[in-house]
Amino acid sequence: MPGRIGVVTFPGSLDDRDARRAVRRAGGTPVALWHAEEDLHGVDAVILPGGFSYGDYLRCGAIARFAPIMRVVVDGARDGLPVLGICNGFQILCEAHLLPGALIRNVGRRFGCVDQPLIVGNAATAWTSAYTSGQRIVVPLKNGEGCYLADERVLDELEATGRVVARYAVDDEHPDPNGSARAIAGVCNPDGTVVGLMPHPEHAVEALTGPGQDGLGFFTSILGAVPGVLAGR
């Protein structure tokens, strides 16, 4: 049976359906998880999708962090359950202290929506093993609060330990999208099982509806990683 990947739907989630579809296209079995249920239904990994959970009231991800499903997601993540937070999911992971730092309003204060080139910084995480370190991929980026911040000590540690999963490729054609510290687009926990990512790989899984298929690797990676990760638990 292919890996069962749970995708949580919060009130205000937008990209849960696309994330489930990406899992299916990668060859996995998507499992819809509901925010109000304290039950992971035995999934092998969890995706927290993009959107505006609970209307982004207070701070992005601040209310979602206390949803019943997050109790089991946080406990599971501490025991090695792989979790990918995309956009709003990344914000939730930071609010839940599963990842360091925070995401604040874009420096330009504009909601940006672009096909964003990224440089993969760490291809050894549970969610990026299908890539190579230094690989350039193009994935849609769409957010208003995507400016990643952490204090200098934390940023130094993230870089020194290979926990910057992806950076924005900034060049003449592609300006800095949101002012993130050190152009960080995604980070992971020390084990590489919990990954937070601002851009949306689930929107780049087929040429018809996205800029390409560069995002599919996040979903094939986890399907390849699941047995190994489970064996290690």
Binding site: R105, R109, L149
Partner: peptide, 13 residues
């Protein structure tokens, strides 16, 4: 309040 060392794009605007 945002910490003094934290960027405040809204305040700047």
């Amino acid at each position: 309040m945002p910490k003094p060392e934290i960027l405040d794009p809204q305040g700047q605007a």
